[in-house]
Structure formats: C-alpha cells, structure tokens
Design a protein around this nucleic acid. Structure first.
Lengths: 332, 332
DNA sequence: CGCCATCATGAAACCGGTTTCATGACAATC
DNA sequence: GATTGTCATGAAACCGGTTTCATGATGGCG
C-alpha cells in the first residue's frame, strides 16, 4: 500500500501538498493538483486511516448505543442510520446495553474508549442527568427520548400525541368507556402516551376511570394480565388502548381465552406498528412512528454537532394512526 | 489525557517498559511492574487507540456486513455477536448491503477501507467466488451460508435437515400428500430446504408431486399466491411446508380468505421461528435455528482467525422443530 | 522601481504508541 | 577468574498522516 510520501515523490511534490489535495483544499495550483491526482490514481493510493486518525484526532466514525438490539424496530433504525452515515463516509460502531443502566454505561464507555467522534444513544435505563453530562463532553444525540436539559440533542416522538390519536380514534367511533394499559410509567414514553389518553378524554368532557388505567411493563404478558384484571373486575369498557403492540397482543390473547370478539365486543389499539401488527387476526390498529425519518434526522444532527454546529432544538416527530381491523363502533 | 511518556516519567522508566506492562508481557521485573501500574492508576492513563492502531497496524475491531439489517432476526444475531466481541475488547462496525450485490460489495469495501481486522459477512447477493477470494485476503467468516470452497470459514445451518424435519413431522402425523412452497431456488437455503423435503418423502416411499412444489421468493405475498395457485388447481394436499414463516403467513391469509381451517383441514409449517410465528392464531409450527449459538461461534471463529489460527471446518448447526398449533393429523 | 500582500509550496515537527536492537548487570559454567 | 548466557531495560526508529511555519515567487499599487 502506497504511502503519502511515495505519492508525493511520484508527483514531484511534498507530502503536505498531497495532503492538501486529498482534503480538497483550495490553495493548490490547478496544474499541481492534477499531477498529484494522477499520482494518486497511478499508485492506487488510499490514505491510512490509522495515521489519519492519529494526526487529526478524529476517528471518522460514530457510536450507536442501543438498549435492546433485538428489539422490534432497531433494524429499521439502524438501516437508515448506517446509510446516512456512510454517505458522509462515517462508520458506525455498535454497542448494546441490554436495558440495564450499568451495561448501558459500559457500552458508552466502550465506544468513548474507541474515540468515536460522536454518539447516538438509544438508552432506556441511563438517567437524564447522566445523558446531560455526556452531552457536554462529546457530540451526542439521544434517540427516541426527550431529556429536557438537552432537548436540542434529542430526536424524539410526540408520545402524548400518539396516546391522544389512539384514544381520539376510539372516541370518534363512539366509545365512551376506554381502558388504558400502559407501559412502566417511570419511562417517559409510557407516561406521555397516558397523558395523551387523558387529554383526549378530557376534551370530550369524559372523566378518566382510574380503575381502567393499569400500569404494565410493555411485555405481552403484562398486557394479558392487565386485560385479565380488567375482565375479572367485570369491567364495562368497550375499548382498550395499550402501551405498545406487544401488550395489545397480550390483550388479544386474554380476550380470545374468554371468547370475546375483537372488534365486535371490544376494540383495541396498539402502539409502534411492529411487523406483527399487520399479521395478527384481526390485524392490529396501531400508532406508527416515522422511525426512518427520525433516524435520518439523528444522523444529520449528529454530523452537524461533530462539525461544531451548535445544537438547535427541533420539534418532536409526530406519529400517525394506522387503521386496521381491531377497532369498530361499540355495540349498541 | 496522559501519554505513555508521562506515565514512563512518573514511574521512572522508559515508554517501552510501560508498553510492555500494558500488554502484560512477562519480561518485566515485578517491582518495576508495580511502579508502572501505580503510575498508570495515578494518571488515569488509557492508551490512545489511534496511536496503537497505527503502530500495531491493528484496528481492534471487526466489520459486519449485513444484507438486510431490518430482517427479522438480525437483531438476535447482532446482540450475541456484539457481546462476544466486546468481551474480547473488539469493536463491531456495521455496514449494510440491502440485498444487492453491488451494495454488498460497497459495504465490504467500506469496512476494509476502515482497516477492520476481520469481517463477518451475512450476504445473500455476493457470489461464492467473490467471498472465496475475500477469504484469502482477510480474516473472514461467512454467516448463515455455506460457500463450498471455504467451508471452514462458514457458520451455517443444515437447511436440508430443517426441510426434512418439517416434512417428516407432517408425515409422522399421517399426511401423505404434502405441498412445498419454496424460496428462490437459486438461493442455497431455499434449495436445501427443498432437498430435505424430498428426502423425507423418499424415505417413506412417497413420490414427490412436482405440481405441489411451487417456487416463491420468501415473501408473504409469494406464499399467498403459491397457496392460491394450489387451491385453484383443486389440490388434494392435506399439508404445506413453506420456505419461511413469512410465506407461511401468506398461506394462512390465502386459506382464511377461502374459509379453510388450519390445522383441521390443512396443516402448515413455517421456517425461521420469527417473532410473529408465536403470535398468529393458531400459532405457527415452525423450524427454529440456533442463531445465538451460531453468532457466538462466528465471533469465536473470527477472533481465532485474526489470531492466526488456521481455519478448521465445522459441522453445520442443526435446526429444531417447534411444535405449535398449525399441524394436526389429516382428516379421515 | 520598490514595497507589500497574496499565494503555492516544502521542511519539519507532531500525534502517541510499538518494536527492534543495544547495553549493562548478574549468574552460571568451565 | 574469564566466558557465556539470561534478563530487564532504555534509546531510538518507526507507523503515515496533518499542520504550522517559513520561504520564494508573483503581482498589484504607489
């Protein structure tokens, strides 16, 4: 592999000039530039990334910290992220944290130890304060979460809106008694969705029935249990909004076990639009997040931060309702 | 950030000695080692990875080339890979190809340009010859595919066995007329599964009905169409094995549209054990691949190759049957 | 014509480790 | 006691870019 000095010798210039040509600097004579470019082509010169990193103190790559790599939509997110970064000739290092704060911190430290130029963090467990501190140290964007102190570093979804959309859709169909099976409420997304649920009810002058609001943990199992609890209480709800699709799946299981018909006897709405949502029967009506757009935005935001741009706050991304087969008007 | 020279000065030794201590070399006096370690701790010294890479010509990271990042099980694979590599203090760079040969090649080139120490390649579109050539250039393991010329570099699944297992299960239940909706037969995995299907039939002295073998392309749609074709022909099959779970989902759709009952009127078996398989109703009986074990093996194999081990061929991983709700004995 | 600004370019220092080779100390051997 | 071998260690070269600073050339302006 040719070095910059060999190229320089071949073109009859100094290594400094080759370096200038490589980075497309203006201060190079046209003739010289052409000679250097010819030499580069002739020798198939490709700069040594290690030397470049050492000298410039830049990796040319960013790190992605993911809580659950195996989660239902990380693939879609990574796909877009990777493509956007590669277009900028920036590589993507991945480290996973498995949803525990300690392991997420390890992932961050690992990537920082590799001297990534920046970080995209999709972490459930790390505390706001930790993330805020990190943002002062290194270019960073937080994905799918709003950390108030560093809002300008966050690419997030308007979960309140999503919760509202779901509930509103049921209200529009005529439902008046709607249950809400939430995710863990210490998690921002779950809390936001619940807030949207409450707002939709309030708007219609309906008072929320606190017995019909059950906190789960985003697992299918917790959806099943939540619905079972509701039914055991002899609930009169005609519809259920859930914290995510997994929980909705659990709800369907609980209902099926008791021979309730969806949507004839009870309507149901999920959240996330996972692959499964399309495939269950009846297909799940749900809330869709523009993950690809969000990923694209995250990549661009991070690249800008690395270039020294000052973080500019942006509005949250808005989810949309996907109507499928689990919502119908309530029975008379 | 402290440099190795500062540590050396602090410990009253030369940088060379610090370097020796860092890599745990034996040829260091116990007393000296302790002094150096104290200095390292006192200065919070962490070696500069760029300098290390430049001097040692090693990145300390490997590349993962993925055809479809958003595919149904890449998450599970990446999760395990990343964990195994990180334990060895090796980082993971990811590049996606999107299923086209050209883009897959770009991904490979990109990662090679970043001087990865090795490559894990999960590519559908790249040719065997290309991969074989690559293996001579750089440490590499091929994931979920068998390239005959470099079998020792391949971590793959015994698809023939999977196809056999599925078909055999149906035969054991008493089915005698079984359709097979395959993936694209130019793809090794699809062809292997079909071969297993044929062997299972042959073993029972049943001649395969070529009209009941339809080539699809692994999409849900192709499963639906395949089943529709079969039904339109007034088929007499009592069971269907499909190329993957997506196709099985399509089959279920086609059957539901015509009011056929699964598994009472027709049995069905998928392949891959995707997340959805558990959730559809009835839950899909399918073939499960030990992806985590395979990923673990891929990581270890690659790390060994990087250390200079000579590639040792290994036997394919064997899939297992997951019995759920889509298989029953044929009607009398 | 002389002075100064502008521009293109090269020399050399620098980034911070790793590794080779030389050296000196000490012990074992004859 | 001289020789040889082993061991711990340091000096310095090296990896291959980037960047600063100096320099010489060119040209515009008074």
């Amino acid at each position: 592999m040719a070095t910059i000095r060999e190229v320089a010798a071949h073109a009859g210039v100094s290594p400094a000039t080759v370096s200038r040509v490589m980075k497309g600097e203006v201060r190079v004579n046209q003739k010289t530039r052409e000679r250097v470019e010819a030499a580069i082509a002739a020798l198939h010169y490709a700069p040594n990334v290690f030397a470049r990193s050492l000298a410039s103190n830049r990796l040319g790559g960013v790190g992605l910290v993911i809580s659950h790599l195996a989660g239902p939509f990380m693939g879609r997110v990574m796909m877009t992220l990777e493509a956007a970064l590669r277009r900028a000739n920036v590589s993507l290092l991945v480290a996973s944290g498995g949803g525990e704060a300690e392991r997420e911190q390890e992932a961050v430290d690992f990537l920082l130890g590799r001297r990534c130029d920046g970080l995209i963090v999709h972490a459930d467990a790390l505390e706001d304060a930790t993330l805020a501190a990190l943002a002062t140290t290194t270019p960073m964007v937080v994905f799918n979460r709003l950390v108030p102190d560093i809002a300008a570093h966050c690419i997030h979804l308007d979960n309140e809106c999503g919760g509202y959309l779901a509930t509103r859709h049921l209200l529009d169909q005529g439902h008046r008694h709607i249950a809400c099976l939430t995710g863990p409420l210490r998690q921002q997304d779950a809390a936001g969705r619940l807030a949207g649920y409450r707002r939709a009810l309030r708007e219609q002058g309906i008072e929320a029935d606190e017995h019909a609001i059950i906190e789960g943990d985003f697992t299918e199992r917790s959806g099943e249990q939540g619905m079972a609890t509701l039914l055991a209480r002899g609930t009169t709800v005609t519809a259920v909004v859930t914290g995510n699709d997994d929980m909705a799946l659990g709800v369907m299981t609980a209902l099926r076990a008791r021979n309730w018909q969806v949507p004839q006897q009870i309507s149901l709405i999920g959240y996330d639009d996972e692959a499964c949502a399309r495939h269950v029967v009846p297909a799940l009506t749900t809330i869709h997040a523009p993950l690809e757009e969000m990923a694209e935005a995250a990549a661009h935001r991070l690249l800008a931060l690395i270039e020294g741009a000052s973080p500019a706050p942006s509005s949250p991304f808005v989810p949309t309702l996907i109507e499928r087969g689990t919502v119908a008007p309530p029975m008379a």
